[in-house]
Amino acid sequence: MEIFLALVLGTLFGFVLHRVGASNPENIINMLRLKDLHLMKTILLAIGIASAVLFIGLTLGLINPGHISIKESYWGVLVGGMLLGAGWAIAGYCPGTGLVALGDGRKDAVFFTAGGLLGAFIYMLVYANLEGGRLLHAIAGGKSTLAATPTHYPALLGSIPGLVVALALAMAFMAVAFFLPDNKDSKLSVPK
């Protein structure tokens, strides 16, 4: 059953990433050089909608809180984010969109994915030297959230009901999505 869900959800995710234009490196590059923010608007709206419905579902008991999975905070997250951001700007791909771009028949994505396999391998080899070090030492409460969830994860704003915090953040994301300019130049990069 899980494998069936993996096939269906993975295919859906790849389909949607392709449809919103995220697997087209031109869109990523134009977003990062602040020329065309339509993908940024897409991402922010998606986060806002998903977050709002998730917390409403959790509050009503309709969504299994056991599915919540929070990643730890440590300085390596910031440094790793910067390394990823640099590669993202150079290539125009991130790990997921690179895979979808393979399905799009993009040859540069083959090289990106091969580089990704080498990068992951390098990290596997150096991890032993980082383990237990300061770069991976938990900060900001470790696996923490801003909004309280019905889980064991600590919430930084735990004194306020989680739904209130989450809806406020979701509305902020959606508001920014609506107000960012939608550059019509993006139509130029959309083939018919």
Partner: peptide, 11 residues
């Protein structure tokens, strides 16, 4: 870019 992205993502 792929090398940087995946080292970064894993870190």
């Amino acid at each position: 870019g792929g090398v940087l992205v995946l080292i970064g993502a894993r870190l």
